[in-house]
């Protein structure tokens, strides 16, 4: 079993969100980079659990990014990835990133491609769906459960107000979310082993971005909370009805 886990770097969940260069770039000053939580907690850890049951499984990691992504790739290797590929390209365009990953996938042989449901910075939720189109593979999104039995995957995906169980023949693409696995912390042995695991850097295949970020903006700050005394709930209801007009 060959599993490809797509890894993205994102700012730490508590990072201050600010912009520079006339609001055209995210201010990376002092930002701590982490593995996108959905990629790490759910897709990578689920891949590791699959490998624990079937030790012949190989976990390949892929990321599209500059050299600054390498520390988080090493962390992913420390958690349990076997090898990592970094496509040397900085891009914010989902089409372009998916094309780079698909190009690598076509050169190898992968049974299962896992992504997180979205990154916590651009929240685009695009890569898994795009990979399925570029590779002509089945796709199950927002999966919270994945079991393999030979070449058949059984997945549970979220639907409005419930869940749906899907059966799919590998190879396939899955986007993972909460419920799939539990967060892990790399141990010392993993950290030591990660130092010598292969991290291959490949040059990008020629692609053209189809979108361009023109400007970032912060939402207007709230004007201030209106406090209502605990014994004035009729007044709160009146405000919600007449002022906010939400009930």
């Amino acid at each position: 079993m060959n599993i490809l886990v797509c890894i993205s770097k994102t700012p730490d969940t508590t990072a201050k969100i600010a912009f520079t260069e006339g609001n055209t770039k995210f201010d990376e000053n002092g930002v701590q980079w982490i593995i996108n939580p959905y990629d790490e907690w759910y897709s990578l850890v689920r891949a590791i659990e699959i490998k624990e049951k079937d030790p012949s499984t190989q976990i390949h990691l892929i990321t599209v990014g500059g050299v600054e992504v390498e520390p988080i790739l090493r962390k992913a290797l420390a958690l349990g990835g076997d090898e990592a590929i970094r496509v040397h390209l900085n891009s914010n365009d989902s089409n372009e990133i998916a094309e780079q990953i698909a190009f690598i996938v076509k050169q190898g042989s992968y049974d299962l491609i896992l992504t997180g449901k979205e990154t916590i910075d651009y929240n685009s939720s695009c890569i898994g769906s795009m990979l399925s189109a570029l590779l002509d593979l089945p796709f199950v999104s927002l999966a919270n459960h994945l079991e393999l039995n030979g070449n058949t995957a059984t997945l549970i995906r979220e639907i409005e107000g419930g869940e749906e169980t899907n059966e799919v023949q590998l190879p396939m693409v899955v986007s993972c979310q909460k419920g799939m696995a539990e967060q892990r912390i790399p141990n010392m042995r993993g950290i030591m082993a990660a130092r010598t695991k292969p991290l291959k850097i490949v040059e990008p295949t020629p692609t053209t971005p189809l979108t361009q970020i023109k400007e970032f903006n912060l939402p207007p700050t709230k004007t201030g909370v209106k406090l209502i005394a605990p014994d004035q709930m009729d007044e709160l209801v009146r405000l919600l009805k007449e002022e906010a007009k939400v009930i």
Partner: peptide, 23 residues
């Protein structure tokens, strides 16, 4: 940009060589 929209829109964008904005 709901559950099924997230699964479909990016794949459709690829097939139409279209740039996409989700959310």
């Amino acid at each position: 940009h709901n559950i099924n929209g997230k699964a479909l829109a990016p794949a459709v964008a690829v097939k139409l060589s279209a740039g996409i904005v989700t959310g």
